[in-house]
Design a binder for these strands. Structure first.
Lengths: 146, 146
DNA sequence: GAATAAATGAAAAAGGCTTGCATATAGATT
DNA sequence: AATCTATATGCAAGCCTTTTTCATTTATTC
């Protein structure tokens, strides 16, 4: 899910302006990098890929901010490490992943269950603003033979 | 999802016997406690509820072992802390949760999407042994007014 | 009851993430 | 373009969850 850097910056400036949030070099670099990634990446990976041009702490702080602004989405692949992906206007950031338990290969999944399920669950329990986290895990074709 | 301790122990003995795994007091206590819990609990909580009768490390080790034996299932509620639940023969350990983002209330969800979705995804990408992790997040009725 | 393989406890460390504080910098104001 | 002020950064330290190491204890086998 690659994105145009141009687009990101427009979004960024528009979205941040009002909130007393600044456009800084680390934030631009992080967004730029996320735009080039195919799959969610960890803060550590971002830090390394940026050749440590900014502090790891700044990566964490930037990601947290970008997440709160709905520019970035957090994923959990079950290894105690958060991964982040740029929110893509196409799917509104809503898609899932299929992860190989063995080699950790990641495949993007566009399909999802019918949204009726979610609204039914929300209604049944009186919850509002219901979202979900869904990831699939299995063995990829290469790892099945092992 | 309470369970009979009796049942667990039978299962436990049967399952562990073959694998050179021993039935120890900490493991019995942990399983016993999990059988009484309504929702997934953290290792720390287990440790506390057992009045620290065994070391926290032992709790972690036991849970890992029990998980590998499919007696216990790990859940992730998005707060960097693993939670564990006894696998219930009724639903084969397969159910999900609805968690309040605000107060962290947990509701068990029995519904799930059609299993065709999963098999379709598995087939499409050549994956085997595909499972999924699905949790719902929202605002419970009490927290909506806040 | 002795042998032995596995489990435990205690201390330490690893790993992800956050916080406090002094310094630097973006963006507003002039 | 110089100044100002609030926000962001870097660095060090710390927190929290989880893992590792290793000596000791304990469950199971014979």
């Amino acid at each position: 899910m690659a994105h145009s850097h141009q687009h990101d910056l427009i979004d960024l400036r528009a979205k941040l302006r009002g909130k007393d949030h600044r456009i800084t070099k680390p934030r631009e670099e992080i967004l730029d990098l996320l735009g080039k990634e195919e799959h969610p990446v960890t803060a550590k990976t971002i830090h390394e890929k940026l050749s440590e041009s900014c502090d790891l702490v700044t990566v964490y702080r930037s990601l947290k901010m970008l997440e709160s602004m709905d520019l970035v989405k957090r994923f959990d692949f079950g290894d105690n490490t958060a991964r982040f992906e740029l929110i893509c206007p196409d799917d509104n950031g809503h898609h899932h992943h299929l992860i190989c338990k063995e080699c950790r290969t990641v495949v993007e999944i566009d399909e999802c269950f019918d949204s009726n399920l979610e609204s039914r669950i929300a209604k049944k329990h009186g919850f509002a603003e219901v979202t979900h986290q869904l990831e699939f895990f299995g063995l990829c074709s290469s790892c099945q033979t092992t």
